[in-house]
Simulated assay, not measured.
Amino acid sequence: MSTIDIVVNPRGKPIRRLPKEVTLPATAPVSDLYKTVAQKSGQSVHRLRITKGSDGSLLSNGSETVHDSGLRAQSVVYVKDLGPQLGWRFVYVIEYLGPLVIPPIFLYLLRPYLYFNFEQIPEPSELQQIVCAALFVHFLKREFETIFIHRFSLATMPARNIFKNCGHYWALAGVNIAYWVFRPDSPTATDSLHPVLYYGGLALFVFGELANLNAHLILRSLRRPGTTERGIPKGFGFGLVTCPNYMFEIIAWIGIYFLTGLSWSVFLFLVVGTLQMWAWAKKKERRYRQEFGDKYKRKRFTVLPPLL
């Protein structure tokens, strides 16, 4: 078991200079297959997805050996060009930038122009300024975590996704929330919000943000820099649900929902975001079960007991 010849075919559109065959040591990591194909075809390794011809399963660009991945002499692999890529970190920074700056711009700079149809446009209420600060703190924290805390299992994502991601955050969390919550006739335009909504909302927001940060720090500690390997997450919230970072994110947004006097615009973003995080968490639960087997304590709820 010294070296093996692997047959390489394109999947989808042709890839210029794609080699028809690659020879590798059987003990080489699969990452060497990616690097060799990328080098010979002149493509970035991040643009390539390689699957096995035998069953169509993905060959992970990691440390598993070529032999252990199931490849043998004359095994066929298919290479797909994923198109132009952008770094995950860059995409996150851009998508969070919109809802970070849109609320203060709407509340302070564009207020006379957005609400010109009102006979009188009062100064922003104290509650509107608190909500604006909460939104700013939330997305500033997101930016901080993206730059300094998160470690990504994949280096890049398709460049076209940035438009979809930015559309979600800039429109739904930025323009949609800021316009309606900061209107002169919004429930937040008064400082007499019900004490339960006000103090309850503040408590949920602060708790959710701090607990979410703690969950992200735990997840960071599970993955060594420059690797895709991870351990079983343990700590506050991880014994209850698969993704407590999502659970605490939802709690923080429930707090904002209360602070805005139960604004429908915040509720819309909360529902859409919760459903998306639920879908991600279900996939992560399946991945944990496959990866860790009996070592992993299965969770009945993935993001929000007793519902999801």
Rank of each mutant, 00 (worst) to 15 (best):
V271L: 15
Q85F: 01
V196A: 15
K35W: 07
L33S: 08
K234T: 12
G87A: 04
P187F: 05
R89S: 09
A155Y: 13
L217S: 05
Q276C: 03
L172C: 09
L193E: 07
L86M: 13
I130E: 10
D191F: 05
L58H: 13
E143V: 14
K234W: 02
L59W: 07
D294V: 03
V8M: 09
L217M: 13
K283M: 10
R183I: 00
G235N: 03
R17W: 10
V272Q: 11
P233R: 12
D5S: 14
G200E: 01
L202M: 14
V131L: 08
A203D: 01
V181E: 03
T156Y: 12
T242A: 13
G273D: 07
K80Y: 00
P99E: 06
I250D: 02
F106K: 08
N176Q: 08
S125Q: 04
I121H: 06
P124T: 07
I149W: 08
Y296M: 06
L204R: 01
T227K: 12
T228L: 11
F152D: 07
H46Q: 10
Y96C: 10
V93H: 02
F292D: 07
P244R: 06
A203N: 01
F236I: 12
V131W: 01
I250W: 12
Y179C: 02
K141L: 10
I94K: 09
R16N: 13
R142D: 02
P104G: 10
E209C: 11
L275F: 14
S2W: 00
L59E: 10
F144R: 01
G56A: 07
R151F: 03
S31V: 00
L107G: 05
P19R: 12
P195A: 06
A28K: 01
G83W: 01
T302C: 15
F106W: 02
V93N: 11
K283I: 01
S60F: 01
Y169W: 07
L18M: 08
Q74M: 09
T228R: 15
A155L: 14
V93T: 12
E123R: 13
Y96S: 11
R11A: 15
V241L: 07
E143I: 15
L97D: 04
L71R: 09
G12E: 00
L219M: 10
E209L: 15
L172V: 15
A133K: 06
E145N: 07
L135V: 01
Y113D: 05
